[in-house]
Amino acid sequence: MKWIIAFGVAAIVFGLLDGLWLRWAGPNLYRPALGDLLAAKFRFAPAALFYVIYIAGLVWFAVRPGLVYADPSVIMAGVPLAVLNGALLGGLAYATYDLTNQATLKQWATHITLIDIAWGASASALASGLATLAVLRSGY
């Protein structure tokens, strides 16, 4: 049950954050900087697959260590570790994507890379920390 809670909370938090971010950043940041590199229409299937895989990664690499090393007498004990691991995983994942694009595509703006890495680290940290806290508070 704790893994369902962790996955569900991480998915909701990350999904809401990323949805809000993409609604703003798509027309205001990505479209002006990347133009024709962006698809004309959003492709739901690859996005859904990314979110399922990525949230599973957050749960395994960030939430799980936060739960394993949590002190049962201190409700917040594992949260800082989950936040740190979530930030590291998010930064790594987004850096992999953006730096690969910057290395291989004709047009990829450095400011997009820097903003994306910061965004991935921040959103992943928050989703991981809140998912860990939710599991710890649930008593599982």
Rank of each mutant, 00 (worst) to 15 (best):
Y94S: 04
A82P: 05
I55H: 08
T113N: 01
G90H: 06
K106T: 11
W21I: 01
I5M: 05
N28V: 10
A123D: 04
S124P: 02
R31M: 11
A118M: 14
L114W: 14
I115W: 14
L20Q: 02
W108R: 06
M76R: 07
S124W: 01
L20D: 02
A87Y: 03
A127F: 00
I5G: 04
D71P: 11
L84G: 03
K2V: 13
R137H: 08
I112R: 08
L126G: 00
I117W: 07
A45Y: 09
R23K: 15
Y140R: 07
D116Y: 06
A56L: 13
L133T: 09
A48H: 09
I112Q: 11
N85T: 01
L22T: 05
P80L: 08
S124F: 01
V135G: 10
S124A: 15
S138R: 07
T96Y: 03
V68G: 05
A87I: 12
L20V: 08
V63H: 07
I4D: 11
S73N: 12
K41F: 00
I75G: 06
V52K: 02
A48W: 09
P27W: 00
V83D: 06
Y94G: 03
L58P: 00
P65I: 05
N28Q: 14
N85V: 04
P46N: 10
S122L: 09
V13R: 00
N101R: 12
L84D: 05
Y140F: 13
D116M: 03
G91C: 10
Y30V: 06
L37N: 09
L29D: 02
V79A: 11
L34Y: 11
L58T: 05
L88S: 06
A125V: 07
A40L: 12
L126W: 00
D116L: 12
I53S: 15
Y54C: 04
A93W: 14
A48F: 13
L130E: 00
V59T: 14
P46A: 05
D71L: 10
V9T: 12
G26S: 12
M76K: 01
R23E: 09
P32S: 10
V9E: 00
R137E: 08
T113F: 08
M1K: 12
I75M: 13
N101G: 13
A56R: 06
A40I: 06
V63S: 06
Y51N: 01
A33D: 11
V74H: 13
S122R: 02
L88R: 11
A40F: 00
Y140E: 14
W21K: 01
P80T: 13
V59A: 06
W24S: 09
W3P: 02
S73T: 14
M1D: 14
G90Y: 02
G66L: 06
P65S: 07
G90K: 08
G91Y: 07
L49A: 15
V63C: 04
L130G: 02
M76G: 06
L88F: 14
G78W: 02
K41R: 15
G57I: 09
R23C: 04
A70K: 03
I115L: 15
S128V: 01
G35E: 09
L81T: 06
N28K: 15
D18H: 00
